[in-house]
Nucleic acid binder design. Sequence first.
DNA 1: TCCAATTCGTTTGAGGCCAAACAAAATAGG
DNA 2: CCTATTTTGTTTGGCCTCAAACGAATTGGA
Lengths: 191, 191
Amino acid sequence: MTEHRSIRETEKAVQAKLGDTPIRHVQMVAVANIYRAAAAVRQHFENSVLRGAELSWTSFVVLWVVWIWGETETRHVAAEAGISKGTLTGVCRTLQSRGLLERNSHPSDGRLVLLRLTDQGERLMAEVFPAFNAEEVFVSERLTDEECKTLADLLRKIVVQTEENGEERRLALLDGADPRPRRSGRRPSRS
Amino acid sequence: MTEHRSIRETEKAVQAKLGDTPIRHVQMVAVANIYRAAAAVRQHFENSVLRGAELSWTSFVVLWVVWIWGETETRHVAAEAGISKGTLTGVCRTLQSRGLLERNSHPSDGRLVLLRLTDQGERLMAEVFPAFNAEEVFVSERLTDEECKTLADLLRKIVVQTEENGEERRLALLDGADPRPRRSGRRPSRS
DNA sequence: TCCAATTCGTTTGAGGCCAAACAAAATAGG
DNA sequence: CCTATTTTGTTTGGCCTCAAACGAATTGGA
């Protein structure tokens, strides 16, 4: 499979490149591994359980949120699934066209849209979720239950840190300057 | 910011939904948090250090790999960066067009392509990497160095598990059946 | 009772993302 | 030699992804 260079080798190469610049290694390795693990896990799920159900990771997560919480406003679904509202619009379109999801407008607030699983969506999730959990168990097979808890706990601290202090930090880094626009994205219509 | 439902609430809702079906919760939470943390961290980095340099997460990782290891064959870069070779082709095109990366053919094996940073790429990385590491420190601010090591270690076990046993597992799950093609992707030209 | 400000979901534009199909090159085995 | 087979990077097709722009709807003041 994908063969990576060893941690030790990498550290040495980094040190050689940086020389004097002081680098905090443990944090570097921790963050790198978060991302590597997330990619590996996602890959495995998409190519095992999800492939059979013709679902991408994201569509599964969206279905999961709506399945667990019942009829839900899109803004909550986007937040819970960890995707932008624009992305959600597209994913819902796909799921709706496959007959798994239903979109209804809110009875009293015309801006809101409510999402609900169709019967077919319910049936799919009842079948896929246990298989999904079985893979969660598989990928964490080398961890004890206790270690899983520790892992979840440490990761939660990182999530909380970025969510609670991230925005302030980003502002501080800009130090008054205007944030650069993204390289991609919609441009102003005209001035 | 994004307000999530509490773990406890979620567990309760899941239990209500699943009722009898036995679910391994600690693994579920651990895997969910890996993904949540990866997304949160990536978001923070893209909107802080990387935004200023007009780099996406992936282009940064690609530059980083080539920076650390020097002139490298594309297949190694893709593996190290954790992206598919097709994705790498596109990312390289972007980086090359911005004058940060150079592509040279291998002197003795005509199939290979070698990647190298341009001087401008070198300069950019020398500037961006320390800032990047500072953000790695920021997101792990609530963890001690010891906890960072533990975190990296637990995550590594998950990566190793999926990389060493994932393929076999996926084959076992199929149990002889042909793997379904992806929903998206190139179709056979004609038969 | 307006009318400004806010809060939604959608659209837009550019890029990232993968697997499978593909083409070019190198290697292996007669 | 010369033909399979293998190994590379590239192309393709369909989706995901985000932030900013946008329009529709609601809310808050005066």
